[in-house]
Design a protein around this nucleic acid. Structure first.
Lengths: 202, 202
DNA sequence: TGGTCTATATATAAGAT
DNA sequence: TATCTTATATATAGACC
């Protein structure tokens, strides 16, 4: 803040807000990059806004990490995204609503909120995770059968024995980028940083 | 940078690095908070370091969002984490290695890297996601059976009919925090920001 | 809209405690 | 080690183009 000390509040003027966003985004990225360098944090920043067509990525991640993330996740996230999307669009007890999310759920009137907890949860957020490797062979086979049946309309998925392969599809949505980082975080306990910012203003 | 302009490089001195980390973390958080306010970005910052026992969270998220995230995810993520951890510790083709992640995988010698893709993937990253709601009742029941069998040693889990309930357990691991945000992102397309930084340096 | 300028607010390295 | 101080480096609001 300079020529005039600005009151810390939402900037209602569209062009001013955009100008501030761009300036401060740049500053924030630089600060994060510096912290990353000074302290050896393997950091990464992703910012998404309506002002740019592509998410901007400032990577403290090394090239190998980035390539690995892309190789690993571009492909399989397609399938997971489909499941998540299918889930988001068709909650068991909320069909007909435009797109009921767990967060929009709390914005419903009090009457709706006093639904039994277990019902609320069963209806809005039962995405489960399983891993094939920790199963015994019989359960794994059962699981594969379920997947095959659910995926018979999805040409991206190929199931054979214990192995699954997903053909490659490139994407560049914000959600995708975040999920990539999330997945890498889940598997990699090295130092890591992540900055993500969605910007849906003007 | 002030009394002296510092060269942009890793700070090898432990105490200096820690001091810089703390100062700059604070500055970064403030900058993010300001950007959030000025531009209406519903942002959130999480920073984790060995210097603090708890992840620090600076929430542009409103109280309702935070409560919702906690209510929703504290409980069930416990179970998912257990599965992810079990997976991470027991990769099919890498047993005996300390903790083989997909990222450490690419650091292996070239000979190992030319393994067939499908093998590499089957062995290191087949965590799958499913949702109960998009299944037909029969498949859901099968799935519940698998879960029940896999979870018989887990007193946290209760399965009944189509509904699942997980008793509440509080946690505060970095991974947990990240997963919470991830899950909320998956369901909520409002403006959103996220900053995460792991810091495992001294 | 997007860049440049510049006065000033802020951030912060090094030192003091 | 944490906190406070202070001299400077940086970031940036508003103006101008």
């Amino acid at each position: 803040m300079i020529r005039k000390k600005v009151k810390l509040a939402y900037i209602t003027n569209d062009s001013s807000r955009k100008a501030t966003y761009k300036k401060r985004k740049k500053g924030l990225m630089k600060k994060m990059s510096e912290l990353s360098t000074f302290c050896g944090i393997n950091a990464c920043a992703i910012m998404c806004s309506h002002y740019e067509s592509q998410p901007e990525i400032i990577h403290g991640l090394n090239i190998r990490d980035i390539n690995d993330l892309n190789l690993l996740l571009d492909e399989k996230m397609i399938n997971i995204d489909k499941r998540v999307d299918a889930f988001a669009m068709k909650p068991l007890y909320s069909q007909g609503k435009s797109s009921s999310s767990s967060l929009s759920m709390v914005a419903l009137p009090p009457m709706t909120m006093v639904m039994p907890k277990v019902m609320l949860r069963a209806s809005t957020e039962d995405i489960m995770q399983l891993d094939m490797n920790s199963m015994d062979p019989i359960k794994r086979q059962q699981w594969i059968m379920v997947l095959m049946n659910n995926n018979n309309s999805n040409p991206q998925t190929h199931v054979g024995g214990n192995e699954m392969m997903f053909s490659s599809v490139t994407t560049s949505t914000p959600t995708m980028a975040i999920k990539r980082i999330f997945f890498s975080l889940g598997r990699n306990e090295r130092s890591f940083g992540l900055f993500v910012s969605f910007y849906y203003g003007l």
